[in-house]
């Protein structure tokens, strides 16, 4: 039985104050939080800390449906793996039909808690993604001890800030005319 009161309210406020200038780094987040439909989007996943003080050894990102033709950017010192799978449906892209692609990207290396790094991929927001919707990039950060799952998708009427481990997301806007 684990029964832990989360008493860190004061601590969290204190930490929030200290971290305010780099507030966005408290979670795994995307640097660019908006993307145009039917256009290319470079997703930059920012990892601001380890799991507690433990260094990060693996970053795994699940690619959302509608973000297609994804290519991860290799990183020096990190091995890169991708998991390819069929899309939920086929997409029309520059007159070519694509029905499968990268579903998950795994970077393996080492990032100290005291350091910061970015994990980058490029791809296209498909033409049929609804404007105003959010594409979520659930991310699992595996560390020497423990892990963080940035996978919480807010329920209707709530926002990411209501959760402890929110999934990074990008909001889809209308294509430029």
């Amino acid at each position: 039985m684990t029964q832990t009161f989360v008493f860190s309210r004061l601590g969290a406020i204190l930490a929030a104050c200290l971290l305010l200038p780099i507030g966005a780094f408290a979670h795994a987040t995307l640097e660019v939080k908006q993307a145009q439909r039917n256009a290319s989007y470079k997703a930059i996943m920012r990892i601001g800390h380890g799991c507690g003080s433990s260094p990060t050894l693996k970053v795994r990102i699940r690619i959302p449906d509608g973000y297609v033709n994804v290519k991860p950017m290799p990183k020096a010192g990190w091995t890169l793996e991708t998991i390819i799978g069929p899309y939920a449906k086929a997409y029309e892209l520059e007159h070519a039909k694509i029905s499968e692609g990268v579903k998950e990207i795994i970077w393996t290396g080492k990032l100290l808690d005291s350091h910061y790094d970015e994990f980058i991929m490029n791809g296209t927001i498909a033409g049929d993604v609804e404007v105003g919707s959010t594409l979520w990039f659930p991310t699992v950060q595996e560390c020497e001890s423990g892990f963080n799952r940035w996978i919480e998708i807010p329920a209707a009427g709530k926002s990411s800030s209501d959760y402890k481990e929110p999934a990074p997301g990008v909001k889809i806007t209308a294509p430029a005319q």
Binding site: M1, T2, Q3, T4, F5, V6, S8, R9
Partner: peptide
């Protein structure tokens, strides 16, 4: 009344 989440597995 300010009781923070109690986590239970």
């Amino acid at each position: 009344i300010g009781i923070e989440p109690i986590e239970i597995n």
